[in-house]
């Protein structure tokens, strides 16, 4: 079989060899867990209009990594406290300044990025690794990284399942949530800290430039094909995990960079979800003739459940 000229690797059988390698097995498991985690958190983050938060945090994380390098500490260890501090800082700025959150996020992340680039320019030895920082290095994921991601996925699952009602009501109307006994500020803070930690942990695999794709794309795909909230969160997590797995396999097959491959597959998944939602809405078998009213029926009734 001849592979297209633009794919650098020509022998699919060698994929089996690659799959037998422990680093690839770790990468696949890491991709699956990271993708599922991004999709799960993303399903809530997108509704809470926090997609830009993950993007801004991803870019700002470069400063955390730079600080780790400058101080001679493992950047991964610096990243989590840095991300939590970032989340707390943004939360305080939004609460106290009265300025729009997107503008404040822009200020914080541009400034962090500027400092990070200056700091990295001072570290001669790390210049070669900039691509790994920007686009991730999922093949370099270790067992300890995997356990951190697995624990985080478990924590996120438990917290989001227990607070699902609170999260949805807060998204719909914070006063409504408060009147029904939801501790609005407590849950808001808990969620953004969780999101920050997830972003920080996923950066090693995904990179600072592509991290927001992991949070946003599966959630938007899930939203297109589901109108039930629990199913939406589940589909988003499955899309995230499934696309990451396929993307990594594609990356192994073609020897192309892993992070971008995953994001391209996620985008393909999103397009498929869009196609499915459009097709079911236009299906002649379920279409409503003009002027005829079906009680309780609407365009959403035609969507998959």
């Amino acid at each position: 079989m001849t592979m297209p000229w633009f794919l650098p690797m020509a022998d699919p059988s060698s994929l089996l060899v690659v799959l037998g390698q422990p680093f690839m097995q770790r990468a696949l498991l890491g991709g699956l867990l990271t993708g599922a985690l991004g999709g799960l958190l993303g399903s809530f983050a997108v509704l809470r209009q926090l997609s830009f938060f993950s993007d801004a945090l991803g870019h700002s994380a470069l400063l955390g990594i730079s600080l780790g390098i400058l101080l001679g500490i493992n950047p991964t260890l610096v990243l989590i406290p840095f991300a939590v501090l970032f989340a707390l800082l943004v939360n305080q700025l939004v609460a106290r300044s009265g300025l729009p959150a997107d503008a404040l996020l822009n200020i914080v992340y541009s400034t962090s990025l500027a400092f990070a680039v200056v700091a990295l320019s001072l570290v001669e030895t790390y210049r070669g690794g900039i691509q790994q920082l920007l686009f991730g290095d999922i093949l370099g994921i270790s067992w300890s990284d995997l356990s951190v991601i697995a624990v985080l996925l478990l924590v996120a699952l438990i917290y989001l399942a227990l607070s699902l009602r609170a999260q949805v009501l807060l998204t719909l109307n914070s006063d409504l949530a408060g009147a029904f006994g939801v501790g609005a500020s407590r849950h808001r803070l808990a969620f953004i800290v969780l999101l920050a930690v997830v972003v920080a942990v996923s950066i090693k695999a995904v990179g600072v430039l592509l991290i927001s794709a992991f949070v946003v794309i599966p959630a938007c795909g899930g939203r297109l094909v589901s109108r039930h909230f629990p199913l939406y969160a589940l589909i988003s997590a499955c899309l995230g995990g499934g696309c990451a797995l396929l993307g990594l396999l594609g990356s192994g097959l073609t020897n192309l960079p892993s992070g971008p491959c995953v994001v391209i597959v996620q985008f393909a998944g999103f397009l498929m979800a869009l196609l499915v939602s459009q097709t079911t809405r236009r299906s002649p078998a379920t279409a409503v003739p003009a002027g005829r009213h079906i009680p309780g029926g609407d365009r959403d009734a035609l969507e998959s459940r």
């Binding site: 509704l47 409504l176 029904f180 939203r223 199913l231």
Partner: peptide
């Protein structure tokens, strides 16, 4: 708290919000 109900002016329902009436 469970004896109090509140009806706001509106809900922040962006397009295709994945929540059915029954779930809400």
């Amino acid at each position: 708290r469970s004896q109090i109900a509140y009806l706001p002016q509106s809900l922040a329902l962006q397009g295709r919000f994945p929540l059915t009436v029954g779930e809400f």
